[in-house]
């Protein structure tokens, strides 16, 4: 498996990367860790004339933690896992990142690449929808912010333009309990079904809940109705059941090697139920 030939670029600044993307249009592709793109190139399912390697762009790196949290797009999954301040501030990130791929891939794969390439199998997009994160995109026309909940259009199609770069992900410091529950065929696999849940509670009652599902549609699925179904409840069996029922109206899984649609729908309910229970127990 050898990819087709390409021109390699390693710009040092965001502006340089944008100008390369602008100059080469459809023929260019930005690459972070490359662990989604390179296999596609090797299988010759992606033909890239100009590969723009982002690794030297310092502005795309780093994690800032304040009232809100900003994660540079080039932050690797391993950096995210090993950042103890980040884990204290938003522990769901580590819980999810540890369920992505394997150690070698987490050393190279980035959060930005994971959320930007639009693969419905990726875990971070659903997680970012759960956290109501904002993606900052920079292009020749300047920067703009897009909510993760509005970013995904269909598999591999997002509201990012070809000449834009995802620069950073920002979200408010989450409150309450959390859970990232994922069932996969084996370690390193994409989810058969996964749920990201954040629950805030007071006096044994849910005050706010956010729920997103992974790999159960051609985009990640933020289910506002599922979260709403929990608010005001004690997260008892009936409440969880109504959240699951609401979530099932929002997903649209496809049959594949991980199983038929009926299984995935049933599993989505089980996984979400477990995620809610765990998140509430931590709230």
């Amino acid at each position: 498996m050898i990819p087709a030939a390409f021109e390699y670029h390693r710009p040092k600044a965001v502006a340089d990367a944008i100008s390369l993307l602008t100059q080469h249009g459809d023929d260019a592709r930005a690459m972070a860790g490359g662990h989604s793109l390179i296999p596609m190139m090797k299988l010759r399912m992606a033909h890239i004339g100009h590969l723009v390697d982002l690794q030297d762009i310092a502005d795309l790196k780093g994690v800032t933690i304040g009232a809100s949290i900003r994660i540079g797009a080039l932050t690797t999954q391993a950096e995210l896992i090993n950042n103890t301040a980040l884990t204290t501030a938003a522990p769901i990130l580590k819980e999810a990142a540890l369920q992505i791929a394997d150690p070698q891939i987490r050393n190279v794969g980035t959060v930005g690449g994971n959320v930007a390439n639009g693969d419905p199998g990726n875990d971070m997009p659903g997680l970012m929808q759960c956290l109501d994160a904002t993606y900052t995109l920079t292009g020749p026309r300047g920067s703009r912010d897009v909510r993760a909940r509005d970013f995904y259009q269909s598999a591999y199609f997002t509201s990012r333009k070809d000449d834009e770069l995802l620069v950073a992900i920002t979200f408010a410091k989450p409150v309450g309990g959390y859970a990232y529950e994922k069932q996969k065929r084996k370690i390193g696999d994409y989810a058969t079904a996964a749920a990201a849940v954040q629950i805030a509670a007071s006096g044994g009652r849910v005050t706010a809940a956010s729920i997103a599902m992974t790999n159960l549609s051609d985009t990640p699925v933020y289910s506002a109705a599922a979260g709403a179904a929990l608010v005001g409840t004690a997260c008892d069996a009936a409440a969880i059941k109504s959240a699951v029922t609401a979530m099932l109206l929002d997903i649209n899984p496809a049959s594949d090697n991980r199983g038929p649609v009926e299984f995935k729908r049933h599993l989505a309910g089980v996984i979400l139920g477990r995620a809610i229970a765990r998140a509430f127990s931590r709230a």
């Binding site: 069932q183 991980r258 199983g259 009926e262 299984f263 049933h266 599993l267």
Partner: peptide, 16 residues
Amino acid sequence: HDHWRIWRIANQLGLH
């Protein structure tokens, strides 16, 4: 006997 096929056994036996 992967996950979905085991699930299917349980499902067809009425265990869900």
